[in-house]
Design a protein around this nucleic acid. Structure first.
Lengths: 222, 222
DNA sequence: CCGTGTGAAATCGTTCACAGCC
DNA sequence: GGCTGTGAACGATTTCACACGG
């Protein structure tokens, strides 16, 4: 049974809009920041204003998953942090493998923000024999043929892909075959994965294109 | 007057959904890939299938900005690439400055994908005097007090922020003050910027949280 | 008072279905 | 035949507005 003094609804995740999950991540980040600054409660309108969202939106996002607020008071930051972490599944540690130890891969290996949020990179793979065997940020670089072995032994659940675009699909296929359940893909290609594998793609150039569009069209506004 | 043999509508950018721009980036990426493989035309349904979109969606996304298709034929890849680049504003080169030369900053400096898409990182700033003056991937690391100077001289239009979260807002304020029109923020904080500055935030931990949510809730489906 | 939770209304985005063209 | 462009129908998400609780 799910414990805790607040109702935690568990809706079919398919009818929770993806955008809601994105906002929950933002709320969580901000709440943790507020907590460090000694704030103990916050209202939906205060929280929303930090991001330009309405108060109703914040409340709707949260009531998707249960009732976490206190009428007349607002939300207690600490309670809400616990609740959102449970919703997102980050109330436990996830094991992550990195594929491709190039510039970006090395940066991710050294990124402090992951472990703070409950994601631990416990293995890294690269095709280059010169990199294999070396140690980066406490992680030993493995050759791809040790994949099944390492994923099974370290119980790896998630993959981050930072290999060149041309081989990203092949690497994803191998990772899935080995048993990973979710993938964050940084290679600039669209991967196809089975329905039972979660996928998000992050394309750095695409992010810049969003900006270039809005800057280039700023004046055409009306 | 805007030239070219196809109509290029210029709608108020505010009534084009942000999601459309995102998809245009994906179409562009895929079209360039198809072109390299010698494909000359593609239909909306073929293009959509690559991403799991419907044919109608692809056509609607494009007709937002004009008429680029040929009934009975589909879209000519080369024409469409030109059109989308013009829409996104990447038919010219953008000058970008990088703020914060840590792990992630160095990775972005070395990322080939940017220049291929028309984004050139022409300057980098860091607060650490040990880094200032060194050269990374052809870019000289400057101290923050040279900001106005460098932005003006190099005509810098966009900023990428990879400094620690605690100083990200201050750095953004300085960059905006110096004249930058758009920002991609990699620091895990919500920045606030004036209306006339474009902003996108990329939080690496948040991307992993999207995956952890869907993996953690995979079974509760129904 | 202030603030949450929530059905109802409004808005926004996607898909349908078909006229017109090659 | 195949395919685009597009108004109309649909579905999803956001906002409104108010009942209820502290």
């Amino acid at each position: 049974m799910i414990s805790g003094k607040h109702k935690l609804a568990q809706p079919d995740p398919d009818d929770v809009p993806k955008a809601v999950i994105n906002r929950l991540s933002l709320y969580l980040r901000e709440l943790q920041h507020l907590l460090r600054n000694g704030k103990t409660t916050i209202s939906s309108s205060q929280l929303g204003r930090l991001f330009g969202f309405t108060d109703a939106q914040v409340r709707k996002d949260l009531t998707c998953f249960g009732q976490f607020g206190h009428p007349g008071i607002g939300y207690r930051c600490e309670e809400l942090v616990v609740a959102i972490r449970r919703i997102l599944g980050t109330d436990r540690v996830w094991t992550v493998a990195l594929f491709g130890v190039g510039n970006l891969g090395r940066a991710l290996l050294g990124y402090k923000g992951f472990s703070a949020k409950g994601f631990q990179i416990v293995a890294a793979f690269d095709a280059d024999p010169h990199k294999v065997g070396s140690m980066i940020d406490g992680v030993c670089i493995e050759p791809m043929d040790r994949l099944d072995d390492v994923v099974a032994r370290q119980q790896i659940q998630l993959a981050m892909i930072t290999v060149p675009a041309a081989v990203a699909q092949a690497v994803a296929d191998l990772a899935i075959e080995a048993g990973v359940a979710g993938i964050v893909n940084f290679a600039p290609v669209t991967l196809s994965v089975p329905d039972d594998v979660s996928l998000v793609g992050v394309d750095l150039a695409t992010e810049l294109e969003q900006i270039s569009f809005s800057v280039a069209n700023r004046d055409k506004s009306g």
